[in-house]
Nucleic acid binder design. Structure first.
Length: 419
RNA sequence: GUGGGUGUAGCUCAGUUGGCAGAGCGCCAGGUUGUGGUCCUGGAUGUCGAGGGUUCAAGUCCCUUCACUCACCCCA
């Protein structure tokens, strides 16, 4: 076969795909319980939305977007993240004119044209939560708690929450100037010197040891916060403490998208290698105005489903998945196969996960299928059984087998499975 | 965009100074014609990534190319 999946696009197929769905379900359940409703937004949007929403100076916009002209000549872009599209949809459909905050979740693929590596893909799967229309720090803590609950539900024990604040339009400019003045005095390479002028905060986040050393004494945002940002940040931390969620104050944590303000956070996993961020989010109080909307504060996060899969596998966490098959039918001969087909249908309508051997397999092959299906029970139906009006119900784990009248099979199996 | 590593069976990988293409797992069949797993026996499957070169002879050496992968950068 000469075709292969596009570069940097992970695929999930059985049995791993069951875990993929379970990851989404764990976060969806946490969001639902917190009063968040589902929103479905487009996978692509007008290019301009992302350019203005994500920020012209970000790497995501300048070199990572999947942008193309459609047949009508419009420039469209596959979403590199969710927030801009969700906010656009909220504004377009006037969801913000009702009671606030508007609390939403969504999930699906996002796209960034990057060189792939472990945990970094060109098509990445995210689970996204947004709370739009309030500055209440309780909602900052609530979104963090939803992500935290998701990780807990999946059995992940090594997740770290890194917390920071980036200040607001009042206090950040002065800090930014102070930081730039400090950084300009350092001996740094060309690319880094350019970043000092474009986005100086990101220099703090550099991974190279020699750079880390040089910026060790850089001024920190936490020393330059205005009174309201400081109060906001303190309250978020108090509420996290109330919920029993542990965090690490990380004053150097910077996020790559321009719209963040005040609360920013990242979830990190120590077993993942270079791409260790398994989720991240923050407040975006100016974003609505950036894309032409009214003043409308918001906060949200996205978690990376691909990286969570890697974290689950790295930790060896056992994620519960629903059974694929509880009862497996083993028919012998064509007449029995036809009867078995309707019996399997009855079982399914009764809520039992049921499958059967197809293709006229022999007993041995069909039993092998029963074994591999993971079913707790096999139902064997041959000519002798048909004549007697019964089928053999076999307990796959113990091996015991007994004849059960065909009319009683569904009830018998439902009873045994519920134990 | 920059740098490193790796391409051999469905999967994970051995393959010596250049000399018959291999193992484990998986798959199929039989042992057991109405019974799976465990066990035993047997079997099938290869463009050695691709193209070119050196050589009596290339999986092995040389060149080119493609793919995958890890890291920088950046981010979920």
């Amino acid at each position: 076969m000469s075709f292969q999946a596009p570069k940097g696009v992970p695929e999930y197929y059985p049995p791993r795909s069951a875990t993929f769905l379970a990851v989404r379900a764990a976060f969806a359940e946490a969001a639902r319980r917190a009063g968040y409703a589902y929103i479905e937004t487009p996978v692509f949007e007008e290019t301009e939305l992302f350019a203005r929403g994500v920020g012209e100076s970000t790497d995501v916009v300048t070199k990572e977007m999947y942008t193309f002209a459609d047949r009508g000549g419009r420039s469209v872009t596959l979403r590199p993240e969710f927030t801009a599209g969700v906010l656009r949809s909220v504004l377009e459909h006037n969801l913000h004119t009702g009671q606030l905050p508007v609390k939403l979740w969504t999930t699906g693929p996002a796209f960034r044209y990057e060189r792939p590596q472990a945990g970094r893909y060109r098509q990445l799967q995210q689970f996204d939560v947004e709370a739009i229309g309030t500055e209440d720090p309780a909602v900052d803590a609530e979104t963090i708690a939803i992500a935290w609950e998701g990780y807990q539900a999946l059995g992940l024990t090594r997740v770290r929450l890194l917390l920071n604040t980036l200040g607001c339009r009042q206090c950040r400019p002065a800090y930014r100037t102070a930081l730039q003045e400090f950084l300009r005095g350092l001996d740094l390479d060309e690319a880094t010197r350019e970043r000092i002028e474009i986005n100086p905060l990101r220099v703090l986040d550099d991974k190279r040891p020699e750079v880390r050393e040089r910026v060790a004494n850089a001024p920190l945002i936490t020393d330059h916060l205005c009174a309201s940002c400081k109060a906001h940040h303190d309250r978020v931390r108090e509420l996290l403490a109330d919920l029993g969620i542990p965090w690490e104050d990380t004053p150097r944590l910077v996020r790559g998208l321009d719209y963040y303000s005040r609360t920013t956070y990242e979830f990190d996993h120590p077993l993942l290698g270079a791409q260790s961020g398994i989720g991240g989010g923050g407040r975006y109080d100016g974003l609505s105005e950036d894309i032409g909307g009214p003043p409308l504060p918001g906060i949200g996060f996205a978690v990376g489903v691909d990286r969570i899969m890697l974290a689950i596998e790295a930790e060896g966490a056992e994620v519960a998945v629903p059974p694929r098959c509880e009862v497996y039918g083993v028919p012998l001969g064509e007449v029995a196969a036809r009867r078995m087909f309707s019996l399997v249908g009855e079982l399914r309508r009764a809520g039992v996960a049921a499958d059967m051997a197809y293709g006229g397999k022999g007993l041995k092959g069909a039993m092998k299928g029963a074994d591999r299906s993971g079913a707790a029970y096999a139902v064997i139906l041959g000519e002798r059984d048909l004549e007697a009006g019964t089928a053999q119900v076999k307990d796959m784990a113990g091996g015991e087998q007994a004849a059960v009248p065909l009319e009683e099979i569904v009830e018998t199996l439902k009873g045994r499975l519920s134990r």
